[in-house]
């Protein structure tokens, strides 16, 4: 089997996951992930014809709440853990990638 993951793909996945990896880490992860993914891949040997994907073990549906206002946090509590703030706003260095949202 071809390697399931190479350095380029590791870099791409890291970028999707917003993880900066050092060259050393890229190398290390490539080897490890290769071995692990190869092991994972063995589930494809199993015949699951006619078996539904199971996202949930629970026998329940429709957990709903009424549309009633519940007390939340005040701005002071909301920003208590903020690494940086501007008044009652969260502050971040500039967003350079305009349009990188959805």
């Amino acid at each position: 089997m071809d390697n399931l993951i190479d350095k380029a793909l590791v870099r791409k996945v890291a970028s999707l996951a917003r993880l900066e990896l050092s060259e050393q880490e890229v190398k290390e992860f490539t080897g490890q992930l290769c071995a692990i993914l190869e092991y994972f891949h063995k589930i494809n040997l199993l015949d699951t014809e006619g078996i539904e994907p199971l996202a949930h073990c629970l026998p329940i549906t429709n957990r709903l709440r009424e549309d009633q206002i519940q007390p939340g946090l005040d701005p002071g509590q909301a920003l208590k853990n903020a690494p940086d703030r501007d008044g009652d706003l969260f502050k971040v260095p500039p967003i350079l990638e305009e349009g990188l949202g959805p």
Binding site: I5, L9, V10, V13, A14, S15, L16, A17, R18, L19, E20, L21, E25, F29, Q32, L33, I36, L37, F40, V92, P93, P94, I95, L96, E97
Partner: peptide
């Protein structure tokens, strides 16, 4: 220095190796 680096560097410096490995596996 910018928002993208806040993401990538904070996660690189703040998360441990096993966590990164699993995030990589799951993202993949």
């Amino acid at each position: 220095r910018d928002c993208m680096e806040v993401y990538t560097r904070s996660r690189a410096e703040g998360l441990g190796k096993e966590v990164k490995r699993r995030i990589m596996l799951g993202t993949y």
